[in-house]
């Protein structure tokens, strides 16, 4: 491989993330802004993104009868008023990156099937589109992302074969892939999400500002040039 090829090869970002994770959607947007910022610099190289499964709360039931405030107060013991203030704050931050979170409509659910669908979509070349669709469905549209039929509807919107998605989710054929992602997260010491791994060696935790992501990309690209020179 020539030095030029080595330096122009896409920078890989592996992202561990959940669907029911307000900072994961905000972090996704901030990363995208950061990539745009980095891409506008001279000599920038393409970026390749791959999402990995991370279940924050695997014991959450598929159907939770109540809203997010009731979940936080009932599950976490946070007083309802405080929970309301917390959601108001995160909604404001989401809005600052162009995301219109609707916690009144949000349907709290278990996300393992959504993660299985992410792996299905990856196998069909639509992982990034599926991630965006699932996050938007959950945080903005108040759609259910825990039931197979609802997930199949979302997948079909992207052009995936609805019947085959139902078959896949009912069979659980991607559960092993979800678990493998979670094992890898554990091996890497990832405890919270979103978590971004650049080129398999640098970790960036949480929904950082776009400038931070741009800076890390520039650093990774710069190190390639140093190694190649």
């Amino acid at each position: 491989m020539t030095d030029i090829a080595a330096s122009s090869e896409a920078i890989k970002i592996d992202i561990w993330s959940d669907i029911a994770c307000p900072w994961c959607y905000i972090g996704k947007r901030k990363l995208e802004f950061g990539i745009e910022e980095y891409a506008s610099t001279e000599g920038s190289v393409p970026v390749e993104i791959e999402y990995h499964s991370f279940e924050l709360s695997p014991d959450t039931p598929v159907d939770f009868d109540g809203d997010e405030i009731e979940f936080l107060s009932g599950h976490k013991g946070i007083p309802a008023e405080q929970a309301s203030q917390m959601l108001e704050r995160v909604t404001g931050i989401a809005s600052s990156v162009g995301l219109d979170y609707d916690y009144d409509a949000l349907k709290h659910t278990n996300t393992v099937k959504a993660h299985e669908l992410m792996h299905y979509a990856k196998a069909h070349g639509l992982q990034l589109e599926m991630k965006e669709r699932l996050l938007k469905a959950y945080f903005v549209e108040g759609r259910h992302v825990g039931r197979i039929d609802d997930l199949a509807d979302l997948a079909a919107e992207l052009g995936l074969d609805r019947a085959d998605v139902v078959r896949s989710l009912e069979s659980g054929e991607n559960v092993a892939a979800v678990r493998a992602d979670q094992r890898q997260a554990q091996e890497l010491g990832i405890q919270g999400v979103p978590f971004f791994v650049f080129e398999g060696k640098y970790g960036v935790s949480g929904a950082q500002d776009p400038a931070t992501f741009a800076q890390v990309l520039a650093q990774v690209a710069g190190e390639r040039v140093e190694v190649g020179s």
Binding site: D18, L56, G203, V204, A207
Partner: peptide, 10 residues
């Protein structure tokens, strides 16, 4: 791990 952790869920 680069930088201070940002907002996240655990």
């Amino acid at each position: 791990v680069l930088g201070a952790p940002g907002a996240s869920c655990e």
